[in-house]
């Protein structure tokens, strides 16, 4: 089965990203396909590579990046939500005249249309949020 995942909250404050990660990992290990993981609202904060959690805690950004690499996942950060919250890739940083980017490996920034497309293409859309 083909799943799409929507994540509405950032890491650490809410459990949403943790639960979504565990769900996604379990689905992949069962042989299901993840069409896309779409990060919306504060969920875009999962996609910054500048987080440095304590060493004895999980690093959600790294977990997502590693899962993306292993399974060739499409991790999409909503551009409108990302601009509000300061998540930038190299192109956006240049376009907005900012002095650096912070997007994490395996994540890409794109439009809300990617969420709608995921809803259309996937058999099930699962929303994780607050």
């Amino acid at each position: 089965m083909r799943f799409a995942i929507q994540i509405n909250e950032g890491p650490y404050t809410h459990q949403a990203s943790d639960t979504a990660y565990q769900f996604t990992k379990a689905a992949l290990e069962k042989g299901h396909e993840i069409f896309r993981v779409f990060f919306y609202h504060d969920g875009v904060n999962n996609g910054t590579r500048y987080t440095v959690p304590p060493q004895d805690d999980r690093n959600l950004q790294k977990l997502w990046s590693e899962l993306a690499e292993k399974y060739k996942l499409d991790l999409v950060v909503c551009i409108a939500a990302a601009q509000r919250r300061g998540i930038l890739d190299a192109n956006e940083a240049k376009r907005q005249g900012k002095d650096g980017d912070n997007i994490a490996p395996g994540f890409r920034i794109s439009g809300l249309g990617q969420l709608i497309e995921a809803g259309i293409q996937a058999d099930r859309l699962i929303v994780f949020g607050d």
Binding site: G113, L115, G119
Partner: peptide, 30 residues
């Protein structure tokens, strides 16, 4: 497509950003 809105506006951003999805989604003719 069904958008389930259960939160008041302004206290959190959900209402506004939900509306943004609806507007973009309209182009997909679902």
């Amino acid at each position: 497509f069904f958008y389930l809105n259960r939160k008041a506006p302004y206290g959190t951003i959900y209402a506004l950003e939900s509306l943004e999805v609806v507007l973009i989604g309209a182009a997909f003719e679902q």
